[in-house]
Design a protein around this nucleic acid. Structure first.
Lengths: 225, 225
DNA sequence: ACAATATTCCAAATAACATTGGAGAATACA
DNA sequence: TGTATTCTCCAATGTTATTTGGAATATTGT
């Protein structure tokens, strides 16, 4: 191979590696997971991910340089969002690959989430078919702001930290399907375990809102009901 | 969030990031691109990727730790291969994302490959339909060993560095479709440009053998015809 | 113009990674 | 057993990332 051809080839792979580098840090992956719910300011992200603001800003900057996120300014705040739906898919693929091929990752996920399979997750298509069924309550247990940015049509917003206090709102004879940020979010599995302990019939949605959205299923934006 | 819950969450994202880290280096991405053609020994990989053997070994080791490749020993040689077909898909997604969202990556790819779109690539399905058409010659311009490890049924093996000397084997009135390692491999575009300069009617296949395989289309293993 | 707020930029310390040459280990074969 | 081959391991080097606190910047509202 000619020297300049090799140089060009190396340059191309170096460019490809920029995307890999963006995915090579746990803090950045967590930020991407949060941004998959909708746009957020730097301060909100720093708070939720337990990071310093200056560090959050630096990591977001790195993500932007790799083309994974974009930002807009609104007054004094800067809101970041995923650059495209593909980013959700890419991040999801990395997570799923790790969880399926690395024993340590599977173990870490289980240690954080518990045994989600034991809760018999409901598939997307199954839930979609039953959306208009009065016997099913769909529960969005993410923070209010994420619900407002987009949720499954007809879903009830009960943020995970309010669930225990709002059980009275849920009818006794209904089947509850709880969903949250994604397959590696703890809110829905925890909610289902709490509901079952109180005698409700509850199951988590397999995957969360980003997967639902990627599958092309309907999403409603708007304030809480 | 409780401290131990945060620790578990961080541990999970650290595990996910191991896969990202594996994709964060140009040398490793190039190795994965080569391994998508079939298994290879360390020495072969080092030679093709213009790397030292010790470095190649270290990078393969890193890929194995992230679950992307596995190896088997055959006598004095150790052959590495992709751990699963998903790895091809994952790497392809990273490459395509970079090429579509990063201007510098698109530019680097174009600088290495030339303007592939100008060569009017043939789609997989279109080629599949015409496989039994006598008027179409499918040309595999990868190295012989990669052809032997798997190729499109009926394809003719003419490694890129032998093409100029073997033009006589190609009938004049036929349409030629050349394919190689993938969308970022230079062999097929170069072959098409050479063939056109010599008066042949030639087009590249869009994507290469790994994409063809991922799409579930048939692949034949065996020696050169 | 000034103060308050959110974010970015900067400099510096620490940690992790990439790469190399050479030593060591496993295998095959005479 | 001895030697050649292939690969891995190791130690040392330079490079690149990560994280932090504080200064600088941009915007809003008084």
């Amino acid at each position: 191979m000619r020297a300049d051809e090799r140089a060009r080839k190396t340059a191309m792979f170096e460019q490809f590696a920029l995307v890999g580098k963006a995915l090579a840090n746990p803090a950045r992956l967590e930020l991407l997971d949060l941004l998959a719910q909708g746009e957020r300011s730097v301060e909100e992200l720093a708070g939720t991910a337990a990071m310093k603001v200056s560090n959050t800003s630096a990591q977001l900057r790195a993500l932007a340089a790799a083309g994974l996120v974009t930002s807009r300014r609104d007054g004094v705040r800067i809101y970041y969002r995923l650059a495209s739906a593909e980013v959700s898919a890419l991040v999801g693929q990395v997570q799923d690959f790790a969880a399926s091929r690395l024993a340590a990752a599977a173990q870490a996920a289980r240690s954080y989430l518990g045994d989600v399979e034991a809760l018999e997750p409901v598939g997307r298509d199954e839930l979609f078919k039953r959306l208009n069924d009065d016997q099913v309550v769909v529960l969005d247990v993410r923070p209010q702001a994420e619900y407002a940015a987009g949720h499954i049509p007809g879903a009830l917003s009960v943020p995970h930290d309010q669930l225990a206090a709002r059980l009275a709102e849920l009818g006794e004879g209904t089947d509850i399907v709880a969903y949250c940020r994604g397959p590696y979010c703890v809110f829905a599995p925890d909610a289902v375990r709490l509901l079952r302990a109180r005698g409700f019939s509850a199951r988590p949605l397999r995957g969360g809102l980003p997967d639902w959205r990627l599958a092309g299923l309907p999403v409603t934006a708007g304030p809480s009901t």
